[in-house]
Design a protein around this nucleic acid. Sequence first.
DNA 1: AGGCTCCGGTTATGCGATTAAGCTAGGTTA
DNA 2: TAACCTAGCTTAATCGCATAACCGGAGCCT
Lengths: 335, 335
Amino acid sequence: MTSIRPRPATITDIAKRAGVSTATVSYVLNDAPGSRIPESTRTRVRSIADELGYVPHASARSLRKGSSDLVLYVQMDVVHGPLAAEFHHQLTLRLRDMGYTLLQYGGERHRGVKAARTWAAMRPSAVIVEHERLTPAGIELLRKSDIQVIATGVAAEAVKGEGVSTLNMDDVGVGARAGEHLLGRGYRDLAAVVPRGNVLRRIGTLRLRGLQEAVGPAGATVRSQDMDWSPESAAEVVRTWLDEGLPEAVFGYNDEFSGLLLGALQDAGVRVPDQTALVGADDVMLCRMLRPRLTSVRLEPQSIEATAGEIIRAVTERTEVHLSPWTPVLVRRDT
Amino acid sequence: MTSIRPRPATITDIAKRAGVSTATVSYVLNDAPGSRIPESTRTRVRSIADELGYVPHASARSLRKGSSDLVLYVQMDVVHGPLAAEFHHQLTLRLRDMGYTLLQYGGERHRGVKAARTWAAMRPSAVIVEHERLTPAGIELLRKSDIQVIATGVAAEAVKGEGVSTLNMDDVGVGARAGEHLLGRGYRDLAAVVPRGNVLRRIGTLRLRGLQEAVGPAGATVRSQDMDWSPESAAEVVRTWLDEGLPEAVFGYNDEFSGLLLGALQDAGVRVPDQTALVGADDVMLCRMLRPRLTSVRLEPQSIEATAGEIIRAVTERTEVHLSPWTPVLVRRDT
DNA sequence: AGGCTCCGGTTATGCGATTAAGCTAGGTTA
DNA sequence: TAACCTAGCTTAATCGCATAACCGGAGCCT
């Protein structure tokens, strides 16, 4: 019952059938410049290759050539906002044009040396990875394998200066923009939530810091509170506010958390924005689904194309680049 | 200025330093069973490997072994809902436990033979891919390279019977469940929207069909309309309804589209659900952010673990499996 | 003394591809 | 007629690794 497993065709197979050497086949299929092979042979080789369904073996090729066309994008959370999605897409296309293959690896949740070993085993040209996953030892290991490292995410700058490129997200700026807006509207008694969970908490803390730094000098205060991504948690937060006295304005970390808060506020009979203003962040479609429509801080890409181009430069020319290609901008709506 | 590029350490480097042959190194590092190498040599080799930051070259290894540990998950859109995300994560972990590496390739938007060639070049053990990207010729090419094919998505069954495994999504069932619910509540004049765009339109059409088949026999009618994923488009749809007469109930394709419709309905002063009921699908968090809370049809995973297990079976044992592991279930809320 | 076993390795080969360096037959030129 | 081209290939080495097969010496048995 064990059917014979098909073996992918190799240049050797083609060579045999065409009655030439593998070298010739290789020259033909790669259109090697300067090789003197007549058109008749070329067509014969090519048609046989076609007939056999030949597909070059990428890793055999890169093993021989000693260079890799692989770029690894390490990211475990598949869902990550429209901005990142667009960026990822652009990057993929442009890398492909440069002869690279961008593969996303969402495998392990691990970090440091262990993670670096996994990535290095694939011998990519570069690894694009959230900076939280990097440790000095991990970076060292990657560099020993001549793999470019590009750190992304919140405060990617933190790992700067070790031969690592960075792609920074100005989360402090996001908070600041929210703060400036609320201050301008005359609010002084502010509140903010910070999400629980490893990665999110970091981002949240930075956004909170931006908010505080923006409103502090004007004498405004910010109460902050942890929150989970659930309606129950939102309700609890709102209950605390009702107990302590409703803040004049709330910065809800991002649109999704703000959406939960808005629901909870409405349940509690709080009029938004009359009694309490609300600002989200990311400016996702949700903002325009809710009534009242949610005011938000969006990260405006300065130029996704240009950014992708810089990343490419880091990969191909093996230079170090430091980017922070999103400008936080307030989008004012009803809340 | 051209600094010398570091060369990743190889077993040859280790062998030289340790004063043994590469074979010994290989045996040691792979803990080859049955080889008789004393502990003293083992520790020496291992510590040198460590010192050099040695990481095995995955593709050299698989080239030699003649087998690939790569499974390719071809998926363009990074954002694909929480269900798909969870599934992807499970799959990754379980495949890893079996010694496979799941990589996501979102490269090209292309399909058919050209796409198949790209995938085949990486010599994966299996390719998991939306069935829309597969053509008979493409499948043929993959099979020639001994690559397992697993088709996913809407009506993946369409490509059944060619040695291809399928992972089907019961979108007809989603529509049906919505229909049954609305019928049960006594509505007879229904409306539905179908998203524009290649992939979404297919899903939408299937959900619509399910709805129609469920309510048709009872004499209910379904008006359907195209819609874009934008507030403007939602407003236009609502305007049409106001002109033609408000439907008693609406099936909004999914939660996101329903959210937009809800906003537009509220803007038009329509009371939901009193004047018009609304049912979404996917049961995302958004449902619990909106007020009124959105009723939705969720695809309940029968067992993500079991499903992942079956996929693994297809990959490892090279068998053909056909799965449809999500059951559509109505989640009743306010609308 | 000769044969056997076991230890601690080594040698050799090949996976699929690339590529520098040959090599041969036929034609051209001095 | 000999020397020299050139077209059209082929040979062989190599990338990093795995693995079957082998090998020399020490110790033991008969």
